[in-house]
Amino acid sequence: MSSEAVEVALYDLGVKREARTGFASDPDAFLARYALAPEEAAMIREFDVAGLQARNVSPLLTMGFWMMNHPGKSRTDYLDQLRAAGQ
C-alpha cells in the first residue's frame, strides 16, 4: 500500500503488453497482483490520473498509462481531466 506500488502497476501497464491485456480483461484480478490500497486500485481502475498525480505519482507514468490503456487514448481528454481537477 504505497505510491511505489502504484508506480509499479502503472509502469507495467505502460510498457508490458501482457499487463495491458490482463488489465483490460479483468482489472480487479490484475490489480490484485500489486500491494495497492483499495483507493489506489480504484483510481487506476477508473483512470483517475488527477487523483494519482495528487498522490505524487509521476506524470510520466500517468500519461503513459492513459495513452496505452484508456479506451479513447486521447491526450486532450487526459489533459482535460487534469485541468478540471485544478492540477
Partner: peptide, 9 residues
C-alpha cells in the same frame, strides 16, 4: 516542457 502535467504544451 510539462510532460504529462496539466500545463503540457
Amino acid at each position: 516542457h510539462w510532460v504529462g502535467m496539466s500545463r503540457m504544451g
